[in-house]
Amino acid sequence: MPAGASTRAGSILAKPDHRYAAVSILPSVLVVFAVVIYPLIYAVMMSFRDSRMGVLGGFIGLANYARLFSDVEFRLAIVRTLVLTVIAVALVIVISLGVAMVVNERFRGSSFIKLALLLPYALPGTLSALIWRWMYDPSYGILNAVLYHTGFIKEYVTFTGDPRTAMGAIILAHVWKFVPYSAFLFVAGLSSIPPGLYEAARIDGASSLTIFRKITLPLLAPAMQLALIVQTVFAVLYHFGLVYIITGGGPGRATTTLPWYVYSETFRFMQFGRGSAAAVVLALIMLVFIYVYLVALSPKERTVS
């Protein structure tokens, strides 16, 4: 660096490196924050205003929130969101860890599985929803056909129209699409465990289960933490399309989760204020989720890169 360029002390931009950083980073920061933060503030403001039938009215304080929490359907929507999230995340973690352990054996099938994993990952969410709706079809779906001809069911079942199975149908479709992402994470985590550890344990006579519990799981903790966080985010963020396409929040309200509640309050019932209050609650729940994970699962040092 030419001397003298950094003489204007005090200003952050005085050093060429800092100017470089500012010029490079500012555009991205502006775009992201303008598009994300401004509407978020807008949503918070709207949630304090009276706005039935789509017309924004006066400031009514917390009335929207009060109405919201006195609505049984809203409280149920929160519960359903939690149920969906917990079950979906658990299933994704178990399945993807299993898949990753198979891939980690580094045999001829490993690269095939990795390629196969890419396909559900690359498939746009709406298309996966259409595929699963077609598989669940009560009249001609392949799932009904298989279960019927193997004798598991006596007659065709309306999976997506039965309150007992509709949520399960949504969850299975979600899990299928998001297993690959975690599987890749776990493959990365497993491959960083030195094989010597396994050999040493096996020579000491440790069983597979002990090896899994005492070596694999602890050393996989960073990947596990990341997978839990990411999958929780995915579960809350990305099931909306499935609900929209497969069940429409029904039958009754059996699959009305929080995102669907926000959508239907706002765009079907034109309750903009209450919809916004629900949207704010949704964002807050997300924050709590992440905070709990970070605190409860924080290893000593977290390096993302």
């Binding site: 490196d17 950083a21 994300v36 509407p39 978020l40 949503a43 926000v262 959508y263 964002a283 997300m286």
Partner: peptide, 29 residues
């Protein structure tokens, strides 16, 4: 590559926006 105060914080703040559900901002949008 550039060390400046708040580098990590700003980066995490940007990344945190990914956690925001679309449905939270879809109405004002």
């Amino acid at each position: 590559r550039v060390r400046f105060r708040g580098n990590r914080t700003l980066f995490m703040a940007l990344f945190a926006t990914r956690l925001l559900p679309a449905l939270s901002i879809v109405v004002p949008m």
